[in-house]
Write a protein that binds this DNA or RNA. Structure first.
Length: 941
RNA sequence: GCCUUGGUGGCGGAAUUGGUAGACGCGCUGGAUUCAAAAUCCAGUUUCUUCGGGAGUGUGGGUUCGAUUCCCACCCAAGGUACCA
């Protein structure tokens, strides 16, 4: 009987489904293990072979852990809110929910064919009201919380209100807006409801604020910084402008320090940790206040080099700085205003394209140096950002290259405050080698000492303080879109109020059009009827849920990352209607033990999800502040595009090597041809084009002529992202049809290290496929014979390697080990049950369908899934490796390799024996004998 | 510019703590089987060579008896980030 993978795979997929083999048991006595993939957005294009890479790896690991006796949670769902479905809706009128439904069904079919051991009973969709009810709940909790710096955690806003009623806000240490006014209890009590609320908005973790946003007129929506690439929207490439709008924000900055510190407690890839660290951008320094000389104000600057305070020769403000117009002298006013207008005009794109340009204007104003009282001129310049630090810098040209260039350009003084340093060509910024000079009480001090000294002095004299600054900004949380979670918020005379939990979910209403309203409201402004939890209708009856009338609803929706920020907890308890997750369940499953997904989410999903998890931890709802203990970034599988070359202006196509790709003078230089990408399925393993198939593919090639080399047309190849556009997409269904799911799984792993990105090339799959056929044959006539030592060595060598590989996620080399194992056993003519049984278990995480079938063939009635993973026995290897010889490499060096677990006596004996041999061969006694314990002995002449 | 990761045959990639570089697979060459093909199996496949042996893991140094592996400098590629004071 031959290896009929189609039949086998169908049979076992059905078996697993019918028996619910992979259903995770909640609150089991067995140790838990939670393996999670980043859930996909179900796009219309379906899966290509790049998508399942991470899923296959996590599936292998999940199956391995089951073999080790763990109760494994391995769920899957869909991140189903998103812009493509909405844009499709705008174009076709098709409801995004319908599109999403169709697409996720297709995803499910494709995933099922690969044979994943997923617990589908826990499937979640972020666009499902039963799911986003809990996303809305988290939002309400954030809205009802503030961050207490004293205890370093979030607390209920009601506590804050009590405190205000008791003593005002003077003693409150909260993470809040810097410009919150101070008040006492009486003043608080005297405030109107609206004023009270506006004050609370400075403290809430989810709050409304007028902020400068990136507005994309084309999409009619606000974009986050990370949704903009090179000044245009990531999706669609539309222009983006700056605009002030009232928006919901998330006070993620409150958690900056904890998000930074938390990184050391989790096992995530270093590049990802670095990306988050840089994104948070902690810098330690000082705030220094400079008194105005001819105006009544202080200007504060943030600096990381307070030690260079005596090197200040001017100050630069951002053009948007609030004091600019106030301090500008009459003689400079025209120039300053012109400069401000000019910078406001410049788009982000312009600013980025010439960052090297030096520009600025003198305001005419002076401030006083806090120690020398020298007058310091105040300039404005667009290299200073309004949104970082205080929007003002003290310029120390001798110690900062940008200040240096600015000073050179405008002919400002460059005083030197460094001992023994030449600054005639460039600034000196090496902190480690700094010795301060010409700086009064700082002379002779190092960077660190000078910094500490001056901060102490600034603080004692009241003109500054040590501060820690972060680059991280609060996250804008409103989107002017339809296809997202509605905010559970209504407005009572302009006061935002949260809906009661009993009214949730506040469902996404039907609309006629998915575009903004003529009045410029978001798409939800088109809705006339809203649905809410009818069971509790009476509870919200006093809230007219109809934005047309007394209590308008919030019309924005939440951004894409809202739904993915707690889904990992929801999988623990997906049917729970009362809570996001019950305490009982989350205390059993705790956290994700292995999380696999792409690195593109480093500063978005992964940062926001950590933020929400820390918040949930503060609420006491989850036992761990970090949601994923270990994370692996799988690499991207790129496509290998196939290119044919058409001579410009003709219908003649030239084979790849008939074209000169380098020499621009050649008549057949590549520039005289058009590069056209054709479907990769038209190409065979040798890069040869099937011309007849090409003609059948697109009619335009029927009339074309082809210039061949050696009778074939060879295509050019280029590695690019897999995309329909480039015709280089390989569909996993095709592979499953032709070679089977087990071949696909093995091949994706065999392609290379999991974390590395690599091109897909279907040609190589025959290797793993014929391996499976060999494996199949090996089991064809199993017997009950006792295995030979040689057989056992082969088996245990493989067990050792595969176990090690699984433990450090080098799945690619395991596939090689399996191949070697099967080749050796075939050569040894071994079909002993004692060998084949453990081998089937060993291989089952990688190729589960064939393993199940072989297991059954060995006479087992039960599925292989709960079988224990075979244990490695070192004695089988040692026995046969004792034979290792002394080697003589021609350079009077002798090496003796011994098995790793010999006794000390045995090693000494071996050394003495080979010492003699060495002497005989070399004609002289060895100079030295190097013994690396347990491993290798070198005898050197 | 800065941060990170990487650079090994025609190709994807192996190589324990430094210890026979190129495992395994693809491709290619030759052979067996076959009327023939497919499939399968066997052998060979870094490179140069006067067949003795040289050279060789991006480049140049260093440490070492010994370096793909460790250290220093540089080059190249990919990804992230950017006037962050």
């Amino acid at each position: 009987m031959s290896y009929d993978f189609k039949e086998i795979e169908r049979k076992w997929q059905r078996f697993w489904q019918q028996n619910q083999t992979f259903k995770a048991e909640d609150l089991s006595k067995a140790p838990k293990f939670y393996v999670l993939d980043m859930f996909p957005y179900p796009s219309g294009a379906g899966l290509h072979v790049g998508h399942p890479l991470g899923y296959i790896a996590s599936d292998i690991y999940a199956r391995y852990k089951r073999h080790q006796g763990y109760n494994v949670l391995h769920p899957m769902g869909y991140d189903s809110f998103g812009l493509p479905a909405e844009q499709y809706a705008i174009q076709t009128g098709q409801h995004p929910a319908t599109t999403t439904e169709v697409n996720s069904k297709r995803y499910r079919e494709q995933l099922d064919r690969i044979g994943f051991s997923l617990d589908w009973s826990r499937e979640v969709k972020t666009s499902d009201p039963a799911y986003y009810k809990h996303t809305q709940w988290v939002f309400i909790q954030l809205f009802q919380s503030w961050y207490d710096k004293k205890s370093e955690q979030a607390k209920p806003i009601s506590e804050l209100v009590q405190c205000f009623e008791r003593e005002g806000n003077r003693l409150v240490q909260a993470h809040c807006d810097s410009d919150v006014p101070l008040f006492d209890a009486q003043q608080w009590l005297a405030m109107s409801e609206l004023d009270k609320e506006q004050t609370l908005q400075y403290y809430r973790l989810a709050f409304l604020a007028d902020i400068d946003v990136n507005w994309c007129p084309e999409l009619g929506t606000v974009l986050a910084n990370d949704e903009i690439v090179n000044g245009v929207s990531e999706r669609g490439g539309h222009p983006v402008i700056r605009k002030k709008m009232r928006q919901w924000s998330m006070r993620i900055t409150a958690y900056a320090e904890r998000l930074l510190k938390g990184l050391s407690s989790i096992d995530w890839p270093q590049p990802l940790k670095d990306a988050q660290t840089n994104w948070i951008g902690r810098s330690e320094g000082a705030e220094v206040h400079f008194e105005g000389i001819d105006f009544q104000a202080k200007i504060s600057v943030f600096t990381t080099r307070p030690d260079t305070l005596f090197g200040v020769s001017f100050m630069t403000l951002a053009p948007e700085h609030e004091l600019v117009l106030k301090i500008t002298t009459e003689s400079q006013r025209a120039q300053v205003e012109a400069y401000i207008a000019e910078t406001a005009m410049r788009s982000e794109l312009d600013r980025m394209s010439d960052v090297k340009r030096i520009s600025g204007v003198f305001t005419g104003a002076y401030v006083k140096h806090p120690f020398t009282a020298e007058p310091i001129p105040v300039w404005i310049g667009d290299y200073v950002l309004a949104s970082y630090g205080t929007g003002a810098v003290m310029a120390v040209p001798c110690g900062d290259q940008r200040d240096y260039e600015f000073a050179k350009h405008f002919d400002l003084p460059i005083p030197n405050i460094f001992e023994g340093v030449d600054i005639s060509q460039e600034a000196f910024a090496d902190k480690e080698k700094t010795i301060i000079a010409n700086s009064d009480f700082l002379n002779g001090l190092s960077y660190a000492k000078a910094k500490a000294t001056i901060i102490a002095r600034l603080e004692s004299e009241g003109n500054g303080r040590g501060v820690i600054n972060y680059r991280l900004r609060d996250a804008v949380f409103s989107r002017q879109r339809y296809w997202g979670e509605p905010f559970p918020i209504y407005y009572d005379n302009g006061i935002p109020r949260a809906l009661p939990f009993e009214a949730l979910p506040l469902e996404l209403p039907e609309v006629e059009q998915y575009l903004p309203t003529p009045e410029g409201d978001p798409p939800l402004g088109n809705a006339t009827k809203w649905a809410w939890n009818t069971q509790t209708k009476q509870l919200v009856d006093n809230v007219h849920i109809d934005h047309q009338t007394v209590f308008p609803l919030e019309l924005n929706t939440m951004p894409g990352w809202a739904g993915s920020s707690q889904y990992f907890n929801r999988f623990m308890d997906p049917q729970n209607d009362d809570e996001l997750v019950s305490a009982e369940r989350v205390n059993y499953w705790k956290e994700v033990d292995l999380y696999i997904g792409g690195s593109e989410h480093a500063t978005t999903h992964l940062l926001y999800a950590r933020f929400w998890q820390h918040f949930m931890f503060d609420l006491g709802k989850v036992p761990q502040p970090e949601f994923a203990r270990k994370l692996i970034n799988q690499g991207m599988i790129t496509g290998l595009s196939a290119i044919i070359y058409r001579k410009s202006g003709t219908q003649q196509y030239f084979s790849h090597n008939l074209i000169d790709h380098k020499n621009a003078e050649a008549p057949n230089f590549v520039n005289h041809f058009e590069k056209i990408r054709v479907d990769v399925s038209l190409i065979n393993g040798n890069d040869e084009l099937d011309i007849e198939a090409l003609k059948a593919w697109q009619p335009q090639y029927k009339a074309a002529s082809f210039e061949l080399e050696n009778g074939v047309y060879t295509v050019g190849r280029e590695i690019e992202k897999m995309s329909k556009r480039w015709h280089n997409v390989v569909n996993p269904d095709q592979i499953c049809d032709q070679y089977g799911a087990d071949s696909l799984r093995l091949y994706e792993m065999f392609l290379g290290p999991l974390e590395q990105s690599k091109p897909w090339n279907t040609a190589g799959i025959t290797g793993v496929h014929s391996f499976l056929k060999k494996l199949w044959r090996l089991y064809e006539q199993f017997n009950e014979e006792t295995p030979t030592p040689e057989n056992l060595k082969t088996l245990h060598k493989t067990i050792k390697k595969v176990t090690e590989d699984l433990d450090d996620f080098s799945f690619n080399t395991s596939v090689s080990s399996f191949m070697i194992c099967v080749n050796e056993l075939t050569a040894q003519k071994c079909a002993s049950r004692a060998i084949l049984e453990p081998l089937a278990v060993l291989i089952s995480p990688y190729a589960p369908h064939i393993a199940e079938e072989l297991w059954q063939r060995l006479g087992h009635a039960e599925s292989i899934v709960r079988e224990r993973f075979p244990e490695f026995d070192a004695s089988y290897l040692v026995e046969s490796e004792k034979e290792y010889p002394v080697s003589f490499n021609g350079k009077l060096r002798f090496k003796l390799m011994l098995p790793s677990d010999l006794s000390k006596e045995a090693i000494e004996e071996a050394v003495m024996k080979h010492h003699k041999t060495a002497q005989q061969l070399a004609g002289s006694p060895p100079k030295k004998v190097i013994i690396v314990p347990g491993k290798i002995i070198n005898i050197v002449h």
